[in-house]
């Protein structure tokens, strides 16, 4: 069983909600990035979304843009991201999802990517700028190597379109809570529960909600209706300020309290 599916099963059985952490691989350098990832996984993160740094991250706000730039300046590339996954995988069994932009995967070669990622211990791939209509590029290669192609859904996605784009999604659905780029927001959208109800009506997959979740309070509000909470920019900001462990624990605790 794919580690992602096993994780959801375990969470469901334990009556818990998931915590998905996004960190940019190689930020600010490979060594510190690995230490940050280990710290996050040691403090209650359920699923790791590992950002592959790209020069032109058009879906990302200033925090992840800056993280990508730092990682690239430290010399990070996709091969090194996979090496990092391999090292993490020796000590951790949490699912790892690669999160990246299509050009890097295209240039690496989809078949080679799927093979190498699976061998390194990756469980799924989320290509932020590869929508349903273009999924044919990569879908077969991922499936052949047992990797889940994680689908994105957005507030702008109609119910009709949701039915289509989730028809062959796997692992979980990443619901983009805001119409905007990644990064901090003041509050959690008020109609989140209704939005998620629409999603649940068209898919049985778990739904992780992200974009804009900044702290434990917001994470708790999201966890009240979602299956998992995704936090990215806020973790990166905390990591660079030396308080990643505290924020991870705060969010973990808030998610657990919201459910119990």
């Amino acid at each position: 069983m794919n580690r992602i599916d096993a994780k959801w099963k375990a969470l469901r059985e334990a009556g818990r909600k998931g915590f998905v952490a996004f960190l940019t691989a190689g930020d600010p350098d490979i060594k510190q990035s690995e230490a940050d990832i280990r710290l996050a996984l040691d403090n209650g993160v359920d699923i790791l979304e590992l950002g592959v740094p790209f020069s032109d991250p058009t879906a990302d706000g200033p925090v992840i843009q800056a993280a990508s730039l730092r990682a690239l300046e430290s010399g990070m590339n996709l091969e090194q991201v996979l090496d990092l996954v391999r090292r993490i995988r020796q000590d951790y069994d949490q699912p790892i999802v690669l999160f990246g932009y299509v050009n890097l995967f295209f240039r690496y070669g989809y078949e080679r990517l799927a093979r190498d990622a699976a061998a390194a211990g990756v469980d799924g791939i989320l290509v932020v700028d590869l929508p349903y209509e273009e999924r044919g590029e990569i879908a077969a290669a991922l499936a052949a190597h047992g990797l889940h192609r994680i689908a994105l859904a957005a507030p702008t996605t109609s119910k009709e379109r949701l039915g289509m784009i989730l028809s062959d999604a796997a692992g979980f659905v990443y619901y983009i809570m805001v119409t905007g780029v990644t990064g901090a927001r003041q509050s959690v959208r008020e109609d989140l529960q209704e939005r998620l109800a629409v999603l649940h009506a068209v898919t049985d997959l778990p739904i992780a909600v992200g974009f804009g979740v900044t702290n434990g309070e917001q994470a708790a509000a999201v966890a009240a209706s979602a299956d998992a909470v995704v936090v990215g920019s806020a973790l990166i900001t905390a990591a660079r300020a030396g308080r990643l462990g505290d924020l991870v624990q705060d969010i973990r605790g808030s998610i657990d309290r919201a459910v119990s």
Partner: peptide
């Protein structure tokens, strides 16, 4: 689907696909 042979297409985040 907006392709000129091997080129073109719509490589954007889902948020922009509806528009």
């Amino acid at each position: 689907s907006g392709h000129f042979g091997d080129f073109g297409g719509r490589y954007v985040a889902e948020t922009l696909m509806p528009v």
